[in-house]
């Protein structure tokens, strides 16, 4: 079984982003970038499938600037076999990314595509579902457990009311939620080994995909600030304050 894992290079989750003074976007200069945390979970799951003998090859794909090679290398250091970078410098939209991934899937013929349930920059939560639709495949989103069977895969999903388990016919798309696994840190020897692994360099034109965005960003602004609050000394003061506000 072959597994394709798309990964995105995003602002590190520890960074508190700032809106640019001209309201054109957020400040990305000199900001720490990392692999989208949900994609790390996706890579980990694919590597575990390989370690369990279920998967034979794990291919890590990214669509992004040249520096996204580092993101792919992170995935290769975790245990991915080889990488594909579709170089594209501007902001990407899920629909265009899904179209590129569809074209890559047509070449690679994976049995399973595992990706993060959302990217923590645009918070869209669309790419996996769009890819599944474009390929005509089944999908298991927000996965907290993935159990491959014979031509099928059982996926336990985190839903609003609790958990749900569904069975997907393979090939299938799975999107990873937080509790699917805890991603490993790559060891130094594996980081060194990853440097020698192959990353194929591509462009959107190679796949004939038009990247023109459908949504234009007119303005980016800070969310409304909350008024500074007060510190209370005791539980009684808290109760009194809340009663005064009519909140209790």
């Amino acid at each position: 079984m072959k597994v394709l894992v798309p990964v995105k290079r995003v602002v590190d989750y520890n960074v508190k982003v700032r809106v640019k003074a001209d309201n054109s976007g957020v400040e990305l200069a000199n900001v720490k970038m990392s692999m989208n945390p949900f994609d790390e979970i996706a890579v980990e799951e694919a590597v575990r499938l390989k370690e369990a003998g279920t998967a034979t090859e794990v291919v890590v794909v990214s669509i992004g600037p040249k520096q996204a090679q580092e993101t792919i290398r992170t995935g290769l250091a975790m245990g991915g076999d080889r990488g594909i970078l579709v170089e594209y410098d501007a902001e990407t939209e899920p629909l265009a990314v899904a179209k590129l991934l569809k074209a890559i899937a047509a070449e690679e013929n994976p049995d399973l595509v595992v990706l993060g349930k959302q990217a923590i920059d645009d918070d869209c939560s669309q790419t996996g579902q769009m890819l599944a639709q474009l390929l005509g495949w089944s999908q298991g989103t927000f996965a907290s457990k993935v159990t491959p069977g014979d031509g099928t895969v059982d996926v336990t999903r985190e839903i609003d009311g609790g958990l749900e388990t569904i069975q997907l016919k393979m090939p299938a798309v799975v999107t990873a939620d937080l509790r699917l696994n805890e991603p490993r840190y790559a060891s130094l020897p594996n980081i060194m080994k990853a440097k020698k692994k192959e990353i194929a360099m591509k462009t959107p034109a190679d796949y004939g995909v038009d990247m023109t965005p459908r949504l234009s960003t007119e303005r980016v602004e800070e969310p409304p600030e909350r008024q500074a609050g007060v510190m209370v000394e005791s539980v009684s003061d808290l109760v009194a304050a809340l009663k005064e506000k009519g909140a209790l």
Binding site: P94, L95, Q129, L131, Q133, R157, I159, L215
Partner: peptide, 18 residues
């Protein structure tokens, strides 16, 4: 989680950015 699950498939089929 219901809307997030099915709606992007609709958008992709219609060739629309959600």
């Amino acid at each position: 989680t219901m809307g997030k699950n099915f709606m992007p498939r609709v958008a992709a089929a219609l060739d629309v950015a959600q």
